[in-house]
């Protein structure tokens, strides 16, 4: 390494480190805005914006889906394990929407605490397996912890 090359190497290392620090600081500063959705616990704690649209994310609570007579309006409860928010949505739901599924709903919080959704997106997890394996896993888990803490 000639001194000139060392100098250039130091210079570009400094450049990358500097830009990295700047990007870290910027993303920390914009932390709130980078969140795609708020969890029910955050909503109940008052972190979510009031009076304007935001996204609510969580799992559809088992047994909470109720379809109204018109066939389009759906009521369900979104939970993050710590808190729950009731949601009403009128429209077509994605294929993956079902009990226990992760969803992200865009809408606003009404004064009665109900979340009126304009759009409901399904979130899927990073696990991929054939249906038989999923079934076998479920059976194994059910046998391991009989009834305790399991929603019926």
């Amino acid at each position: 390494m000639t001194p000139k090359r060392t100098q250039r190497l130091l210079l570009i290392t400094g450049l990358v480190v500097g830009v990295g620090i700047a990007a870290t600081l910027a993303s920390l500063a914009f932390r709130e805005n980078m969140l795609f959705f708020f969890a029910p616990a955050q909503v109940l704690a008052g972190d979510a914006p009031v009076g304007r649209n935001f996204r609510l994310g969580g799992l559809v609570e088992a047994g909470s889906i109720q379809r109204a007579g018109d066939g389009l309006t759906v009521d369900f409860i979104v939970s993050d394990g710590a808190a729950t928010v009731p949601v009403r949505y009128k429209g077509l739901l994605p294929d993956l929407f079902r009990e226990g599924q992760g969803v992200v709903a865009l809408g606003r919080l009404e004064t009665d605490g109900r979340f009126m959704a304009e759009e409901v997106l399904a979130k899927h997890d990073e696990n991929y397996m054939p249906p038989e394996v999923a079934e076998a896993l479920k059976t194994a888990q059910d046998n391991k912890q009989p009834l305790a803490g399991r929603p019926m």
Binding site: M34, F37, G57, E126
Partner: peptide
């Protein structure tokens, strides 16, 4: 790092 609609790494 953030809540995203995209799922995590598999």
């Amino acid at each position: 790092w953030w809540n995203t609609l995209h799922q995590g790494a598999t």
